[in-house]
Amino acid sequence: MNFLARLFQMIGKEKSKETAKKRLQLVLIHDRTDISPEMMENLRKDLIGVISNYLDIEEDKIELDFSKEERSVALVANIPVKNVKRRAERRAEPA
């Protein structure tokens, strides 16, 4: 970050150029993957559903987002595990 950006961050004001850049980067990630916020939310719910069959996870601490590299995008999920379920338990639970 350059001096100016740091200075403006200190006084709580961001230059419109930075705002434009951030907005563009976000909007393009969604444009390129063709995924709407609603779809993201559904994906999160489905992921929780599937993973919960196998692991005890901290649902409210899940981080799910896209990370950008050149022109490709990766879906990165950070899912804290509380406990691994026992074999018998896993089989007994409905899918």
Partner: peptide
């Protein structure tokens, strides 16, 4: 600081 720079555009569009 009120217009996106050449470098920014190239970073974004690759």
């Amino acid at each position: 600081g009120d217009m996106i720079d050449v470098k920014d555009v190239l970073d974004i569009l690759a």
